[in-house]
């Protein structure tokens, strides 16, 4: 069944790129999510509106279309703008970078909701006590709120990661040679499409399984010292 006629190494190479893209996108998504959650919870009207528009638009449009918009649209937009200003530049997006930027940007919207919910889950008294001790908003955020927020955010972040790692398959459409693309290329050489894609599917399944175990472990670690009924 799993005789890949010597093309197995291609899939392993693809797998490592998939994991790398997934991991870096998650980091970007978490950064975007923290900024977004700040915007949503902020009393600043402009920040509030920007963050709300961001999550509303991103969650209303399919990832594939967003990927196409960002990958093909951004260079065209920059080139056209530059042309109007009298410059002639040619831009080519590196699919690796474009993939990470796009996935990070999309899943940042989902992470925004996760972090927003997590900040709201912290008992109000914690922040109030910190201000009463004379801490500034920034210091209270860094010392009191942020460390406690993680515990509430972990289950949601785990879900974001699971969806994100599967969404990396879409980046194959813009030519990044991750697991899907490598399987597709190998298909041209050995005429065993089912075997190849099944092997790829098993690799994704392995990532999911390991992630589920990892999530359980991290959650138990983060909840150490929390009394449970």
């Amino acid at each position: 069944m799993f005789d890949l006629k010597g093309y197995g190494w291609m899939l392993w190479e693809g797998l490592s790129i998939t994991i790398m893209v997934g991991f870096l996108s998650l980091l970007l998504a978490m950064a975007m999510g923290l900024i977004g959650a700040w915007g949503k919870l902020s009393r600043n009207k402009a920040a509030n509106l920007t963050a709300t528009t961001y999550t509303t638009v991103i969650r209303g449009i399919p990832e594939l279309l967003l990927l196409l918009i960002i990958f093909y649209g951004t260079p065209t937009l920059i080139q056209n703008t530059a042309e109007r200003m009298g410059f002639d530049i040619r831009l080519d997006f590196n699919p690796f970078i474009a993939g990470i930027l796009t996935l990070g940007f999309i899943y940042g919207a989902f992470a925004t909701e996760v972090f927003r919910g997590a900040f709201l889950a912290i008992p109000k008294g914690q922040g109030e006590a910190a201000y009463a001790m004379g801490m500034s908003r920034m210091l209270a955020f860094r010392r009191i709120l942020l460390p406690q927020m993680w515990r509430f955010a972990l289950p949601g972040l785990g879900n974001v990661w699971m969806v994100l790692i599967k969404a990396t398959a879409l980046v194959s459409v813009i030519g990044l040679e991750e697991l899907m693309r490598k399987s597709y290329i190998a298909m041209g050489a050995i005429k065993l499409p089912f075997t190849l894609f099944f092997a790829a599917a098993m690799m994704y399944l392995a990532i999911t399984a390991v992630s589920m175990l990892g999530q359980r472990y991290i959650e138990r670690w983060a909840n150490r010292g929390i009394r449970r009924a």
Binding site: K166, A167, T168, A169, L170, S172, M180, S183, Y184, M187, K191, L192, P193, F194, T195, F197, F198, A200, A201, Y204, L205, T208, A209
Partner: peptide, 21 residues
């Protein structure tokens, strides 16, 4: 577990291209 743990794109390719095998 299989259908929730793998990307939809793999599933589409598995059925569309894979059936050829």
């Amino acid at each position: 577990f299989f259908f929730r743990g793998t990307p939809l794109l793999v599933q589409i390719f598995l059925i569309y291209y894979g059936s050829g095998q």
